[in-house]
Design a protein around this nucleic acid. Structure first.
Lengths: 360, 360
DNA sequence: AGCATGTGTGTAAACGGTTTACTAGCTTGT
DNA sequence: ACAAGCTAGTAAACCGTTTACACACATGCT
């Protein structure tokens, strides 16, 4: 970047393509064609123009470009919160892939409020983003389905597309793309891991009926119990949200009501596990010596507390969302509209085999 | 949002203001004026127009709007990485304040690479963002200063402004805003906290000469030692970056070289502390029983490991950056160009008083 | 009644690019 | 040597808004 000479009066206007054309002694169309590169041009002209661009430190006005051309070179991501590791990692993937494709990334947060979600989608629609990626856990009721249908149709009409990321698919008539990951499979695998270690009474932390993410994780938990012929005790499923403090609260309340009637804990995510672990410790119970514990997500808190957990490919989720949306933009023929990414266990040091009988 | 009737042929064009005007039977100027609201209009006309907007599910084209009008309604933030808690929290603050002011937020990541930083700034310049917020630790050499000066001037020329967030100020001739927080003061306070508990040999983890954040934190550490008349031992300052693994590495290497010759650890940030704590534990040393430890940032890993640390107002940093930039846009008269936010200690359970003599 | 005022709406010119129909200047084929 | 075929560059139309300016029409004052 070269400091631009503050010559020719106190001109406060930024440099336009016209200035570049004048400086190079050609027409604006020539400059435009040379800059977009999609046109044969004499090397001499080309270098003249490029020199003018450099000397004037010219950058094109994206607004004008988007207005005249078709595509807007931007992808939008809408999350509950940027600081939640889950969303942050997906956002990182989106941002990475967007940068790779030369697009920029606009983000909006909703705090989980459908009203703000709507407002944000409208904002992205105004901005003519090439795609709008909605990520995360949600209650999948009829209102939700209708809302998403509306978004999808409105965006499709504007040449954009809706991508649902880690959310359940909608009907086949709705023009939305879906990228999911295998919650139920991961939960099944890690529950089996606990069962194989001999645990039979496994506390599930973070049930929340109607919310898609906890719902599909608890489904895996139940399936595993059933397949291992372990009786299912609904009293072992504790309700709560997905924030750290809730994990603390749930364990705290459970232990205040009486001594532990479980040997292992399956936390709906790593943050819950971290909170639960703290509550256990405060009651003199150590993980994994006294209680085994597993989580879900494989995000920062997990490594810090040596937690065995399920790895979720968060960044890949974000990258795939962008890739799918842009591919479909390029070439409309029969691409996947629905992708399911796999999950797998990460073993650390938070599970101990259960001795079948008390020590002699 | 109302589903738009797919009438009148296979018209793939999104609804424009002209369509709305035609539908309502008024001119485009009237629609524009009513929608921007900054103009008197007859109630009858107004409701006609609003009805047309609703029926056609019209949203304005932001590109056209920005091109014609002056301001661009968007705020840009450029960070090293979205997943780092430090950046994520600042970004959250930026996003929050932007939403509050009705702007949207575009993000770019650099991975710490100056080349990508430049490219991203250019992108934001193209986009005509109202301000560009650069956040985070950096080597403050001459190349850096020159680069920032170039950015600032180029942005100012385009009516935008550069905001440096958690970075050192530049010369007074550079048109940039600065929002800092008190690294040195916080480090001084928490070092004093350790000293008051009787610790004399405090290991500093994460020195990195030339990098502004570690530099100003270690300065506070040294000042506190000096003020307490504790001899400064350079051998207690260990070099390293600010990632978790480095904390682990530094402690590991130190303990392999010999038994601990320190009673407390001051980690340059909480993530380093988390890594260091793990390494200590693997050598059978417990925090705080065997070794006291403090960190810096008060970000997620801190609460999980019960770490006494320095609270940094990350979100406030982001919010302030946006507020300053937009205020200056509204009213150019003598606002602060440089704000320093305070920091304070958060006491948890990672420091024990040192017994003056070994136990009998 | 006649003129200054004020209110609400319409017209048309930007805004800064891209795109396309068209023209001028060179080869090239026969 | 002349029509034909390419290339490189030009000029004008357009993208969807905002906004100065003009205009009609009702109202208030003398």
């Amino acid at each position: 970047m070269v400091r631009r000479a503050a010559s020719e009066g106190e001109d406060r206007r930024p440099t336009t393509i016209r200035d570049v054309a004048a400086h190079a002694g050609v027409s604006v169309a020539t400059v435009s064609r040379i800059l977009s590169g999609t046109y044969p041009s004499a090397p001499a002209t080309r270098s003249k123009v490029m020199r003018a661009v450099r000397e004037l430190d010219y950058v094109a006005n994206a607004n004008a470009r988007n207005l005249a051309g078709a595509s807007s070179r931007s992808v939008a991501i809408i999350v509950n919160s940027v600081v939640s590791p889950h969303y942050a990692h997906v956002a990182q993937g989106v941002q990475t892939q967007a940068a790779l494709e030369g697009k920029l990334c606009i983000v909006g947060t909703t705090g989980g409020d459908p009203e703000r979600e709507l407002a944000t989608v409208q904002l992205m629609r105004q901005e003519h983003a090439e795609c709008v990626i909605l990520v995360g856990n949600v209650v999948a009721d009829d209102a939700y389905r209708e809302r998403m249908g509306d978004y999808a149709r409105a965006l499709a009409l504007a040449g954009s597309r809706l991508v649902l990321c880690g959310r359940p698919a909608l009907g086949p008539d709705v023009p939305a793309l879906v990228v999911e990951y295998d919650n139920t499979g991961g939960a099944y695998a890690i529950t089996s891991h606990l069962l194989s270690a001999g645990h039979r009474r496994i506390l599930f932390l973070g049930r929340r009926a109607g919310h898609t993410t906890p719902d599909s994780r608890i489904a895996g938990y139940r399936n595993a119990l059933a397949d291992h012929r372990v009786p299912h005790d609904p009293g072992l499923e504790l309700d709560g949200t997905m924030e750290r403090g809730e994990g603390y609260r749930m364990i705290r309340q459970r232990l205040e009501a009486g001594p532990p009637d479980f040997t292992a804990v399956f936390a709906v995510n790593d943050q819950i596990a971290a909170g639960a672990r703290q509550a256990l410790r405060e009651q003199g119970l150590r993980v994994p010596d006294d209680i085994s514990m597993v989580g879900f997500d494989d995000l920062p808190p997990a490594a810090d507390i040596d937690l065995t957990t399920v790895h979720v490919p968060h960044e890949e989720l974000g990258r795939t969302a962008v890739r799918m949306a842009l591919e479909r933009g390029r070439d409309k023929t029969g691409q996947a509209e629905h992708v399911m990414l796999g999950t797998h266990i990460i073993v650390r040091d938070s599970v101990r085999p259960l001795r079948p009988t008390p020590q002699p």
